[in-house]
């Protein structure tokens, strides 16, 4: 318990220290607001403009979660398909790598072309960004199931479905939940990219407009909101992960005492 507490304390100290150093450096070198506003200014801006910022934050959160949900559905389906056999895995992997290495910003104009500017391209971009970690992890989890575990089931004359539901899927859960943490932050990135390029709502759009009118504190306030939302979603999904797949994390538990 003690080392864990110390580690948390050190993390908190580092975060606070970062903002304090930022504040002090801005004051010491007389850096102008328009270049780099001080953290205290950002917080003040955030508090003053909250009624204006809030709907945009909600919009971004909503878009992200919808995109994320679609990403989970598509990701699990594709992952199960790709991971269903060694052959499917080997065949599909190059295509997957190809798709996932496309810079996703590049697809936003295509979505805008198809669906017009607004929420839909943002949802789709969020989905596209978060689907790959899920597909890869689910497929890897299924494809790397130990053959001995399957032999145990096959010796019992278990059907394909029995093997999948009793061995394949439970075994894949840690991979799946590990991918959700990554995927949800990716979905955020996707949403903001799309909002920046082609939307009239959302934090991305807000930051775009604020920067074009040189309202730099507002830009940073948007950034802060994004950071907080991203961290919050990450924490939620790591919490779920530990609760659902605790058996796969026993080493950490022991290490933490």
């Amino acid at each position: 318990m003690n080392p864990q507490l110390r580690r948390r304390f050190a993390s908190a100290a580092l975060i606070i220290g970062f903002f304090v150093a930022w504040e002090l450096l801005c004051v010491a070198f007389g850096i102008k607001d328009i270049v780099l506003p001080r953290p205290s200014q950002i917080v003040v801006t955030l508090a003053q403009r909250m009624p204006a910022i809030w709907p945009h934050a909600l919009q971004t959160l909503y878009t992200t979660l919808v995109g994320f949900a679609l990403g989970i559905l598509a990701g699990v389906f594709l992952g199960a398909l790709v991971g269903s056999s060694k052959l499917a895995y080997d065949v599909a992997y190059p295509l997957l790598v190809g798709f996932s290495s496309i810079p996703k910003v590049a697809v936003v104009p295509i979505f805008v072309l198809w669906f017009g500017a607004g929420t839909i391209p943002a949802v789709l971009t969020a989905m596209i960004l978060c689907v790959f970690p899920i597909v890869v992890n689910v497929a890897t989890g299924l494809a790397t199931t130990e053959p001995e575990l399957e032999d145990v089931m096959r010796a019992l004359k278990a059907s394909k479905f029995d093997i999948l539901s009793n061995v394949g899927l439970p075994r894949t859960m840690p991979y799946f939940f590990a991918s959700l943490k990554v995927a949800v932050t990716q979905a955020f990135v996707g949403t903001v990219i799309a909002e920046t390029v082609a939307s009239n709502r959302g934090i991305g759009n807000l930051m775009m407009i604020a920067s074009s009118s040189f309202d730099v504190p507002l830009v940073f306030a948007g950034l802060l909101i994004l950071a907080v939302l991203g961290v919050a979603l990450y924490v939620v999904f790591s919490f779920i992960e530990v609760r659902v797949t605790g058996w796969a994390h026993r080493k950490d538990e022991f290490a933490m005492g």
Binding site: E148, D151, V152, M153, L156, A158, N166, R171
Partner: peptide
């Protein structure tokens, strides 16, 4: 069937592991 490795399912308790054949 029993192998050199115990091949127990790590997400199940011993009881549920042993009960697996009864489920199948």
């Amino acid at each position: 069937m029993a192998f050199q490795n115990p091949t127990l399912l790590p997400w199940l308790t011993l009881r549920d592991n042993v009960m697996l054949p009864l489920k199948i």
